[in-house]
């Protein structure tokens, strides 16, 4: 009987001492953390994609709580809904971030940009671009080994087997920017998603002069400035033998599209052109 008693007493004593130590330690070493951080983290998408510019959702939540003004901060995955939820928790004003989407600015498929060499080595764009200009004559174009696809955490990209170019699945793209960092050639760009997802962009980043650019790739931007001249909104910038459409200024009038001699300017999600009403359209579309 006494054995049982001793056991009970000694174990209870041990437990009590341990409890006291734990209590003291938890008091002494307690770190105060704003409970709102947890609340904010709760509404964030928990993808830890880094699209906000911070390493992971927790870090973003901390930054949001800490910041006085969160209007310039945005979670590209959650979008406006998430940011409004965050704003209501924190009692701050959410910014109005424009929805963005990643755009591949190269159309140098096997057909357009014939291969001039045969690359054999580690199958990643990072190694190829460090080694040389790439398999085609264009040193600016896509290497086609899919570093961007490997970096995408949202299943928003795949490599098109036929063209050898990456394709972005618009519905899945959250504009986190991972593919932009992964591309050693800076081909992918985040652009405004646009009304009804309509966008116009120059699908080429070649900075060569016209002749060599055209020789390397049939659909290269040859820097002829035709689009620049026709643009009524001053949205096109000519630099380094290359046209760039500023999506902030572009009113999607599409005047530049037929102007391009190499068809390097792409329009996406527009209704198929109707030749007859083509002249009127520019006036009607930029209404939004």
């Amino acid at each position: 009987m006494s054995v049982v008693l001793i056991t009970i007493v000694s174990l209870a004593g041990l437990g009590a001492i341990a409890a006291m130590i734990l209590f003291a330690a938890s008091k002494k070493f307690q770190v105060f953390e704003d409970p709102r951080i947890d609340e904010v983290e709760e509404v964030l998408p928990a993808t830890n994609c880094g699209g906000c510019g911070l390493p992971g959702c927790r870090a973003f939540a901390e930054a949001l709580v800490k910041a006085d003004d969160i209007s310039s901060m945005n979670c590209p995955v959650g979008g406006a809904d998430t940011m409004n939820a965050v704003a209501s928790i924190l009692g701050k004003e959410a910014g109005t971030a424009i929805p963005m989407v990643a755009v591949v600015r190269c159309n140098g498929s096997c057909e357009h940009a014939p291969k001039t060499t045969n690359y054999q080595g580690a199958q990643t764009c990072a190694v190829v671009s460090a080694l040389y200009g790439g398999e085609t004559g264009c040193a600016f174009g896509c290497d086609g080994l899919g570093d961007c696809v490997a970096s995408c955490k949202f299943d928003a990209m795949y490599m098109d087997d036929e063209t050898g170019l990456p394709v972005i699945i618009e519905e899945n793209c959250v504009a986190c920017g991972a593919c932009i960092d992964a591309c050693p050639k800076n081909i992918i760009e985040l652009r405004k998603k646009g009304p009804k997802s309509r966008r116009i962009f120059v699908s080429c980043v070649n900075k060569d002069k016209g002749a060599p650019a055209k020789k390397a790739c049939a659909v290269a931007c040859i820097g002829c400035s035709k689009c620049f001249k026709i643009c009524p909104h001053d949205a096109i910038e000519m630099k380094d033998n290359h046209a760039y459409i500023d999506y902030e200024k572009c009113k999607l009038c599409r005047k530049c599209v037929p102007e391009c001699p190499t068809k390097a300017i792409h329009e996406i999600n527009f209704p198929p052109p109707k030749p007859k009403v083509k002249k009127e359209e520019p006036e009607t579309t930029p209404a939004d």
């Binding site: 291969k115 001039t116 060499t117 045969n118 690359y119 054999q120 080595g121 580690a122 190694v127 080694l131 040389y132 398999e135």
Partner: peptide, 8 residues
């Protein structure tokens, strides 16, 4: 003919 290119 297309030359093979690879790192050393």
């Amino acid at each position: 003919k297309r030359l093979i290119v690879s790192p050393s």
